[in-house]
Amino acid sequence: MSSIHFFEKGEGQPLVLIHGFCETSRMWTDFAEKLAKDFRVICPDLPGIGDSPISGEQISLEEVAVILEEWMDANEIHQPIVIGHSLGGYVTLALLELMGSRLKAVGLFHSSSYADSPDKKATRNKAILFLKKHGVDKFVSSFVPPLFPEGSSEEFKEEIAWAIEDGKRSTLSGLIAFTGAMRGRKERLDVLRDFSGPKLLIAGTEDGAVKIEASRKQKDVFTHYFELQGVGHMGMVEKREETLELIREFALSSTKH
């Protein structure tokens, strides 16, 4: 039996929502409540995050995909629509490479099919050193606020505080492991291009983590592409209702595919 912890709401077409880095499945609570009217919404904690265990400080996205495939089989999650935020999008693409047409549709939410640049890999290395020296709480407290647009800290004060507390539910091993997994991931643009099902990308024009230029560069491989004006890396918080409807409409149209 899979050790993946998750919650689910609703019934019908499975819709799997995968959280990002320094996040847990709880980030999707509001979305799950609203989307459960139309779908069986399932939100897992990735290994080492929230209530899902991990052994050691190393894991690859390919290994995560195998774990999630086994978890889906064990819980009779068949032909799911899978949408991932940031790291969750990288996991979604690894799942797509593994499962192919066994996924009905995929969505990337502030994410990318490209590999890390050399500069980004260097930043990941520094993050691992910081984590090992200072621990989870200090890392998360410094990592989360810049995910929101510059100058928006007062507007989203409560949301940032909540996101920091949620991120602190990650284990040290989990954060180190996934920092390394993101650093080592390969480009999966061809995986996306070869998939014949519906494909969604939601991008923020002020996203500091996934630059809008990178999103625009790969937009042609998606069947559904949306830019959120003035939005950073946290569209599900910054533009909650708008992004909720984008996901609902994409998922509804995908069930007819």
Rank of each mutant, 00 (worst) to 15 (best):
L68F: 00
G88Y: 04
S153L: 15
N125I: 15
V41T: 09
M27Y: 01
S254Q: 07
S3N: 10
I83C: 08
G10Y: 06
H85P: 04
I164N: 03
E245Q: 10
K256R: 15
G184I: 14
E249F: 15
H5P: 09
E97S: 10
K133C: 06
E8H: 00
V210T: 13
E62L: 11
I59Q: 03
E241G: 14
V66S: 05
R40K: 05
A32G: 02
H85G: 09
P146N: 12
D166C: 06
L35E: 02
E165Y: 15
K132H: 03
S3L: 09
P146A: 09
P80H: 07
R169H: 13
K120E: 10
I18Y: 02
I54L: 06
L68N: 08
V16M: 01
M72K: 08
R193H: 10
G10N: 02
I160Q: 01
R188K: 15
F148Y: 15
D194E: 15
A251Y: 07
K168R: 09
D190P: 11
P198S: 02
S170E: 07
L61D: 04
F222Y: 15
K132P: 00
L200C: 04
T24D: 06
G197W: 05
D220T: 15
H134P: 13
F139Y: 13
E242Y: 13
V191A: 08
F39T: 03
F222S: 01
T223G: 10
V136I: 06
G235H: 04
G151K: 05
G107R: 02
R26W: 05
F139Q: 06
G184L: 08
S152F: 05
E76L: 04
R169P: 09
I83Q: 08
L200G: 08
E165P: 00
E187D: 15
V136C: 09
A122V: 09
K256V: 12
I176Q: 13
T243K: 09
S196R: 14
L103C: 07
G20E: 03
S170G: 13
R193S: 12
S113E: 06
L87C: 15
L61H: 02
G167N: 12
L200Y: 11
L93W: 02
H110V: 00
H233Q: 03
E62P: 05
A251F: 06
R188W: 04
E187I: 04
S52P: 02
N125E: 14
K239Y: 11
A163T: 11
Q229Y: 13
